[in-house]
Nucleic acid binder design. Structure first.
Length: 892
RNA sequence: AGGCGCGUAGCUCAGGGGGAGAGCACUUCCCUGACACGGAAGGGGUCAGCGGUUCAAAUCCGCUCGCGCCUACCA
């Protein structure tokens, strides 16, 4: 079979992707009788393109799913997308704008048709991109938050919460985005520090020559002032409470009131009260029955209530007002005042606190249960320090504003009767008013926050409110994998809704992956232009390389820096695996021989080297399993990387080469080596498959194999009987000997190609036996022409000398190397060893150490120091016996 | 203002009370019949600073400095 030197990801990935999809390998098998394992995907926006964060998140889920599937679980990874109210509406509105149209001109119905059309065309782009990543979702169960079933779930939840009084409608100050023209929840507002100013304004007190000075960051809101408030215990203003202030400009008469909420230490201690434009003021106004004057409209322009300032943008108004107030002597002073300003997380416009009618969810009762579920570990967070954030937020929770003044989304199932005014909230659209029987019902124009439907995702996707078999089987989900930045947006709300409507938490574990940052550690953002396109990386380095990088960099709780050099490195890893496989294949001329039962079944008659590599791959199986069990993708990845590259390739393959060439080919050992090569490669491919699905499938299919696809074969598990510490020790010794010989050669600048005869000396039988039984391997790997054991290494021999525990060695270098050079080399080595020894001996001399430290620690230190002493002694003898022409003729 | 996290080799990061690690980069040698996206051998770190606990601290505790992030209705 022709095997190219390099793996070509492009063609291979496409082929397997199609094969997997066609074969139904990813489909859940509810009737299988296997233990279910379910993950629902955090649904990406239909407007989105796959970014590095998705790639990370999906890769981590896919690793879990593929791993569990191979372990024999009935896996369901349920995919889907999110309708993303504001984002999608914005995209389509922009499109309309280019055509010179507006959604208002189009009308609600036509606009929605247009959005659906957009969705049909672009909404699945991200799904295809996830498939390119190799995501083994059950695509037959793909869901969308606006699907009929999911919309039914939304309605059911809304109605039930309303009936229980957990959803209510109220007039309140909400976060309003003047650009998006909708209310936002607290979470959708991002705060950013700005270098603001604090303006001090003198308000004249009626009937006196006095004035009272208020301080504000937003002077334009003075047009909506309906009171001035001071703290009841504030001596400075004691006499003023109950008096009237003449509001400058508008000349409105407003009262001076006393309220506990006023902070005496801030500003002047007197605060202007603008009920329609500040949440605190609104609350205060309720306590004091103050009117609210709305001076800003939905686009944050001043209303007719602003009098001479009507019809202006809020900032233009501020500017003019400040000028005018200053001219009028009202502006007492202006101080620098840095403070945080809230902005719309979608469009970055400064949010305006606005008085309006909105729908809210009463959160405290829902939070109680949600808090308990995490407190008592029915839900476990990984890493669990995220619990602190969760608890903190839950304990200080505010009601959730869920109505949005948009068209794209779940319409609020509430109607008002135009004739009797009754409010109707219903599962089915009502035909007439249950109170007065009139048919003139007007549905609430608003839609729900997209996160309201996302909160139902773990059960709405499984068919709820219908009691489907999927729901019974896959709820609760096994684990949720998501980025920590949506802990409150999504995770917390899913927990509340899951507990409320299913009576059980939606998942057992939540793994929080980090955010992906660029090479400089900055958060990726489109505006910064530092985004890395994962699709581009897949094209350049292969999907497997990208996936492996993401896994290797995913350490719990930490953000991930996506370094291209790293991706490149793991691409090389893929090539390495590919070539190891190539080597194995090239050595299997018949291709089938090694699959004969005699080579697969028993471990009898294996060589020490074979036993060693089997013991190692077995240990690796256990380590990978344990790592994944704890979501330590990074550890699993590095364990596999190290094993495949530095144990299997660097040592095992090199060690068996002598038995695969020439006459050795057809010996029992040769055949056995081929069988073991195949067996270990097969194990490695299985272990690697969840990380690098394409490459491993491609290779596996080329090897003799049973089964249709690697996706569905068993994941290797640890077997006690394969653990072989004797073999590990023996090969460990062999490796140490080879390494030392190579080191001597390199340090003495001996030509790499020159074959040498080594001299060995030992007083022990074991090292000798090991060396002799691995003679061919040792000679090949250390490039020796031969070796022999001697009773003593002659002192006058010109040679590079080395010592490892249990073995002294010498590489004769007659005429090749200067003895002075060799002496300096030995001295350098001794110096190092001396330093190390000094540290150990200081410890051993310390009685509190030998007395108090655990005995095994002391024993280890003793053993180490004994070995060091022995080595130094041997090195020193070797150095002193060197045949130097003159005494101490070295440069020193 | 609170809370959380981080500061370890040139870079990106693991580790987490008893011999400082990985990958990349770097140096030297090698195109050896799987692989030069390769092989072999190396160099490189007062583990941010100060103090404490301990026989032993990069690791635990406290403080300081620097950097992130989250939460917060102080006008």
């Amino acid at each position: 079979m022709e095997v190219p030197k390099r793996f070509d990801p492009g063609a291979v990935e496409k082929r397997w992707r199609e094969f997997w999809l066609k074969s139904g390998s990813f489909t859940a098998k509810p009737e299988s009788g296997k233990v279910p394992y379910c993950i629902v995907i955090p649904p990406p926006n239909i407007t989105g393109r796959l970014h590095a964060g998705h790639a990370l998140n999906a890769t981590l889920q896919d690793i879990l799913i593929r791993w569990r599937r191979m372990q024999g679980r009935d896996t369901l990874w349920l995919p889907g997308t999110d309708h993303a109210g504001i984002a999608t509406q914005m995209v389509v509105e922009r499109e309309l704008q280019k055509e010179g149209k507006s959604r208002h001109a189009l009308g609600r119905e036509a606009f929605l048709e247009r959005v659906w059309a957009w969705k049909a065309e672009h909404g699945d782009a991200i799904v295809e991109q996830l498939q390119r990543l190799g995501a083994s979702c059950d695509w037959s169960r793909l869901r969308f938050t606006l699907d009929d079933g999911l919309s039914q779930a939304v309605r059911e939840v809304f109605v039930r919460l309303f009936e229980e009084g957990l959803i209510y409608r109220d007039k309140a100050i909400v976060n309003w985005c003047p650009q998006c023209r909708t209310a936002l929840s607290d979470l959708e507002v991002v705060h950013r520090e700005v270098a603001g100013k604090l303006y001090h304004l003198n308000y004249p007190v009626k009937g006196t020559a006095q004035h009272i000075t208020v301080a504000t960051t937003r002077p334009e809101t003075m047009l909506g002032d309906t009171a001035v408030a001071i703290h009841p215990a504030d001596e400075r203003y004691r006499g003023l409470v109950g008096k009237t202030v003449i509001l400058p400009i508008l000349q409105r008469e407003i009262p001076i009131i006393a309220d506990e909420a006023v902070d005496r230490t801030f500003g002047t201690g007197a605060v202007k009260v603008t009920p329609a434009h500040d949440p605190n003021d609104f609350a205060m106004a309720r306590r004091h029955n103050l009117p609210a004057v709305v001076i800003l409209d939905e686009s944050a322009r001043t209303t007719p209530e602003a009098g001479p300032y009507a019809g202006m943008d809020r900032y233009a108004c501020r500017k003019k007002l400040v000028t005018d107030l200053s001219a009028a002597g009202i502006l007492a002073k202006v101080e620098d005042h840095p403070h945080a300003v809230g902005r719309c997380h979608r469009c970055d416009t400064v949010v305006e606190p606005m008085l309006s009618d909105q729908w809210f969810v009463r959160m405290v009762p829902l939070a109680r249960e949600a808090l308990a579920a995490v407190e008592d570990s029915r839900i476990r967070f990984i890493p669990d320090n995220r619990k602190n954030d969760y608890f903190e937020w839950m304990r200080n929770i505010h009601d959730w504003c869920i109505s949005r003044q948009l068209w794209w989304g779940h319409r609020i199932p509430a109607w008002t009767c135009a004739s009797c005014g009754r409010l109707i909230v219903a599962r089915q659209d009502p035909a007439s008013c249950p109170s007065c029987g009139q048919a003139s019902l007007v549905q609430d124009p608003d839609v729900l926050d997209t996160w309201f439907s996302s909160a139902l995702w773990p059960f709405s996707t499984l068919g709820w409110p219908e009691q489907t078999p999927d729901l019974a089987r896959y709820y609760p989900n096994s684990v949720l994998v998501t980025a920590y930045d949506i802990l409150f947006f999504w995770v917390a709300r899913m927990i509340m809704m899951g507990l409320k409507f299913m009576g059980r938490p939606p998942f057992e574990q939540v793994y929080f992956n980090g955010l992906v940052r660029d090479e400089k550690g900055r958060k990726m953002s489109k505006t910064r232009g530092n985004t890395v396109d994962p699709l581009d990386l897949m094209d350049r380095f292969g999907t497997d390389a990208l996936r492996f990088t993401l896994a290797a960099m995913a350490s719990p709780g930490a953000d991930t820096v996506l370094d291209l050099k790293r991706v490149e490195g793991y691409q090389a890893f893929g090539t390495k695996i590919w070539n190891a496989a190539r080597f194995v294949l090239l050595n299997l001329p018949e291709g089938t021989e090694a699959t004969k039962p005699e080579f697969r079944a028993s471990s009898a008659n294996l060589s020490i080297t074979d036993r060693w590599i089997i013991s190692r791959v077995n240990a690796v199986s256990r380590e990978v399993d344990q790592a994944l069990e704890q979501f330590r993708y990074d550890e699993a990845a590095s364990t596999l990387y190290h094993f495949v590259w530095h144990e299997f390739c660097d040592w095992y393959i090199e060690m068996v080469k002598p038995s695969l060439i020439g006459d050795a080919r057809d010996t029992l050992e040769g055949r056995r080596s081929r069988a073991i090569l195949l067996r270990v490669l097969d194990r490695a491919l299985r272990l690697l498959h969840p990380f690098m699905p394409f490459l491993t499938e491609e290779i596996w299919q080329r090897l003799p194999h049973e089964g249709e696809t690697l996706v569905l074969v068993d994941y290797p598990h640890y077997r006690e009987e394969e653990e072989d510490s004797d073999a590990e020790k023996e090969v460990g010794f062999l490796i140490a000997a080879v390494t030392k010989l190579r080191n001597l050669r390199a340090e003495s600048n001996l030509p790499a190609g020159l074959k040498l005869e080594a001299l060995f000396h030992t007083d022990l039988s074991r090292p000798r036996r090991i060396v002799e039984s691995h003679a061919a391997t040792l000679c090949t790997l250390a490039r020796l022409s031969a070796f022999r054991f001697v009773a003593e290494i002659p002192g006058d021999l010109a040679a590079a000398r080395g010592v490892i525990p249990g073995l002294e060695m010498a590489l004769p270098l007659a005429g090749v190397q200067d003895p002075h050079e060799e002496r300096r080399r030995l001295e350098r080595e001794m110096e190092k060893a001396q330093k190390e020894l000094a540290g150990l001996e200081a410890k051993l001399a310390n009685e509190s150490f030998t007395g108090r430290a655990p005995q095994d620690v002391v024993a280890k230190v003793r053993e180490a120091s004994r070995e060091l002493r022995e080595r130094i002694e041997k090195l020193s003898r070797a150095a002193s016996e060197l045949p130097l022409a003159g005494l101490s003729s070295g440069p020193e």
